[in-house]
């Protein structure tokens, strides 16, 4: 173990302390847990990045598309008898229940995203509204959904729904990987790969990339741009719904009207970090943000530092690579 266990900055304020020993000893467990959190950011980041890639629109209401999915997870699992203590179920029954909750959440979030596009953004597009109008509308839609949820469910979080008690599965460099981390990371990676394959290998996916790179020329190829836009919102919503299941798995009492806000900002940051408009960038950015937040929290010895550190690193990376780590690949070349 390092000789210096705690470094206090010689001249610095004494409220910043670097706990290097904890950072080193918890490095691998922080990495593993950060990857699980990061998977959730990455799934939500996909929605931001795809909509941005196709429309150059930052869909601020995407965090609400996500939290509505979390409500769907809560209601489905509550109806299935889940509650504040882990249920006593066979693995098969548990998997069945969770898959059901995920599918419902995907459906609900997907529909909310499509409805949002229809109600909020399409009318602006028809009128050729300036970009700022879209941005304001997006923020307005975000608040509208939040306060609709508030009016319906009140200010308090919903009671916790525990899905299962995480069990250690295997060890790596002395750190334990538990079943929950494994499920979240594995499922998120599979979903991201499916999305990536859809976008890169199918005809419809190619149409989507064409609209992102050059909408007018895509139309000249016979691509129905409106259909592509709906598809983009739908895919983003579906992935946010899946993310909602994993979020509730990790934060069982996190279903609250404004619960999407912080996570949404982090997912958006993850999208920017990886290169907005870039699907693989969203994955990379999400995972990085999850891991870096965990490192920072341990290094500085306080959970309140998680987001600060994550954003400081984000700004640092953007100073070196302004278009994000992987750059804008769905998007067109911009001036």
């Amino acid at each position: 173990m390092p000789v210096i266990s705690t470094i206090v900055l010689a001249q610095g304020p004494d409220w910043i302390q670097f706990d290097v020993e904890a950072f080193v000893s918890q490095f691998w467990s922080n990495t593993i847990d950060g990857l699980a959190y990061g998977s959730i950011y990455a799934l939500v980041a996909m929605g931001y990045t795809m909509v941005y890639g196709v429309l150059q629109l930052i869909n601020f209401a995407h965090s609400e598309v996500f939290i509505v999915g979390a409500y769907a997870v809560f209601f489905v699992l509550s109806a299935l008898g889940f509650g504040p203590s882990a249920p006593n179920l066979s693995v098969a029954a548990l998997v069945g229940d969770l898959v059901l909750a995920m599918l419902v959440a995907m459906l609900v979030s997907g529909l909310v995203a499509v409805a949002l596009e229809r109600v909020a953004y399409r009318p602006l597009r028809r009128r050729n509204a300036p970009r700022l109008a879209f941005l304001i509308t997006a923020i307005g839609a975000s608040f509208a959904i939040q306060y609709a949820l508030f009016a319906w469910r009140g200010a308090n979080p919903e009671p916790a729904v525990i899905m299962f008690r995480p069990k250690p599965v295997f060890e790596i460099f002395g750190a334990t990987i538990d079943s929950q981390q494994l499920v979240i990371f594995g499922a998120a990676i599979v979903l991201m790969i499916i999305t990536d394959m859809f976008v890169n290998r199918t005809r419809l996916g190619r149409g989507l990339r064409a609209v992102a790179q050059d909408p007018d020329t895509a139309t000249l190829m016979g691509v129905n741009k409106e259909r592509v836009i709906v598809l983009t919102f739908l895919i983003g919503g579906i992935l946010a719904g899946a993310a909602a299941l994993f979020y509730v798995m990790k934060v069982p009492a996190g279903v609250q009207f404004n619960g999407g806000f912080i996570l949404g900002i982090k997912a958006f940051a993850a999208a920017v970090l990886g290169g907005i408009g870039n699907i693989r960038g969203a994955l990379l950015g999400g995972l990085l943000l999850g891991v870096i937040g965990n490192y920072g929290q341990t290094l500085l010895g306080n959970a309140q530092w998680t987001d600060v550190v994550a954003f400081v690193v984000l700004v640092g990376i953007l100073m070196i690579r302004p278009t994000g780590i992987l750059g804008e690949s769905l998007g067109r070349a911009r001036v």
Binding site: R203, R206, G207, R209, A210, Q213, D214, D216, T217, A218, L220, M221, G222, V223, S329, L330, R332, A333
Partner: peptide, 29 residues
């Protein structure tokens, strides 16, 4: 396009991030 009108636009409109084959395949969309 389905009716049989196809255009090579001013400035070419090549999809920069697609390969030559993918671009040609877009023509047959």
């Amino acid at each position: 396009v389905v009716r049989g009108i196809s255009q090579s636009p001013e400035g070419r409109g090549v999809f920069p991030g697609m390969t030559v084959l993918e671009n040609l395949d877009m023509g047959a969309y």
